[in-house]
Nucleic acid binder design. Sequence first.
DNA 1: CCATTTCTGGACTTGCTAGTCCATTTTTCG
DNA 2: CGAAAAATGGACTAGCAAGTCCAGAAATGG
Lengths: 216, 216
Amino acid sequence: MTKLTAKGAATRQRIIDGAAAVIREVGLRDTTLDDIRMRTATSKSQLFHYFPSGRDELLLAVAQFEADRVLLDQQPHLSDLTTWESWQQWKAALLRRYRKQGTTCPMAVLMSELGRTDPAAQAVTRSLLLRWRTDLAAGVRAMQATGTAPAALDPDRFAGAIVAAIQGGVAILLATGSSTDLDAVLDLLLEQLGTPEDVSAARSRGGVRASVSGRP
Amino acid sequence: MTKLTAKGAATRQRIIDGAAAVIREVGLRDTTLDDIRMRTATSKSQLFHYFPSGRDELLLAVAQFEADRVLLDQQPHLSDLTTWESWQQWKAALLRRYRKQGTTCPMAVLMSELGRTDPAAQAVTRSLLLRWRTDLAAGVRAMQATGTAPAALDPDRFAGAIVAAIQGGVAILLATGSSTDLDAVLDLLLEQLGTPEDVSAARSRGGVRASVSGRP
DNA sequence: CCATTTCTGGACTTGCTAGTCCATTTTTCG
DNA sequence: CGAAAAATGGACTAGCAAGTCCAGAAATGG
C-alpha cells in the first residue's frame, strides 16, 4: 500500500462495504469475488489492486469492519454501565441488535473461515473480545464503587463470563431463531450485579421471566 | 438407500469416521473428497454410491456423528446430575473434553457451512441442543426434589442458559485458546444450584477462583 | 450354480473461481 | 504543461474439486 488518493481510498472502502453487504445477504460460502465486483461496480484488477494478496486479505478487512460494528452497535450503553438501569438498557439494545440480525452472523462466519489459519485474523477476534470485556469490567467496577454490586465479584472474571454468555446465546439464536436462551443467560448473570430490590423489581416486571423455554 | 450388505454398511461407516477425522485434522475448508478418499481407501464411485447427493450429504452424516459424540463424551455424568458433586464432575469432564479438543470444533464448523442452507442440517443442531437441555433440566429438577436447588429456579430456562454458556465459552476457547471464560461462566451459573455451604466450599478449594483473567 | 444385486476402481468431464496481465484512462504534482 | 504514479477495464489462464460413467469384481439368494 504505497499511496492512496482520496478516490482510491473511497473505492477501497466501497469494496469493503459492498463485500460485507454481500456476505450478510448470501453467506460467505456463496460469495465470490465476482459477486463483490458486481455489487461494488469494480473490476477484477481493482480488487487485487487494493487487496494484493487477494480474497483472504479482503475478507480480513471485512472482518475488521464487522468487528468494529459489533461494538459500535452497543453504544452509547456499553461505555456507560454505571447503574442497574444502564445495564438493563445495554442488554435490551444487545437483544435488539441480534434479533434484527436474524440467523446471520458475519463475524462468526468470517472467523470460522479465516480464524484457524491466519494469525492476523485471530488478532481481530482477540482484539474484539478484549475491548468488549474491558468495557464490561469497567462497568462492574463502577457498580462496585457505588456499592451496588458485591465487592466480592471479580470484575474481569465476570466480564469474561458475560462475553461468553453473549457468544453462546447468539450462537443458539443463529441455530434456532430463538433468543430465549440469550435472554436467560444474561438475566441469570446480571442478577448478581443488582441489589435484591432491583432483581425482584425486574422479575415482577417480566424482565426476568418465569418460564418460556419449550422447543429450542 | 435400498439395501446395504454388512460389508457395505461397514464401508459407509468407514467413510464417515475417516471424513470426521480428516475434518478434525485439517479443517473443513481444506477437506476435499479426494482427501477423504485417500484416508478411507475408497474410490470416487464408493463415495457417491453411499452418499448419492454428494459432498453435502456426506457432511451431514458427519455432523450427525459429531453431534452424538458431543453428548456421549459427557456421559455418564450428564445422565446423573443429582447432587452438587455430580454437577461439578460433569463440569470437569466437559472442560477436559473441550480443552483436549483445542482450537478445533468440528460441530461448529460443519454447522456454519451446512446450517444456513439445509433444513436437515438445522434439524441435527436442534436435536442436539434439545437433548442437551433436556438432560440438564432433568438434573435441575432432581436437585430441586431433594431441596438442594431453589424451587424458584425455572429448570428449562436454567438449562437453556447453561447450554448457551457452554457454546459461548467454547467459542472463546476456540478463538483464544483459553478456557478461563468457559470455566467462569459455568461457575457463576452453577452457584445458583448449590447451598451456600457448597458454594463457599468450592470457592475455598479454588473451584471458583478469585481472579485469573488477563489476556483473553 | 446361476442370475441378480451390490460393491468397487479409476478415468473422464464439467464448471467455476481465484488470480494474472496488459492496455488505457485519470490523477497528482513539480 | 507534461511526466510519473495511481486507478481502472476486462479478457485470459490455471488449477482444482465435484460429480459422472461404465466396466468389472464380489456377494447374495433362490
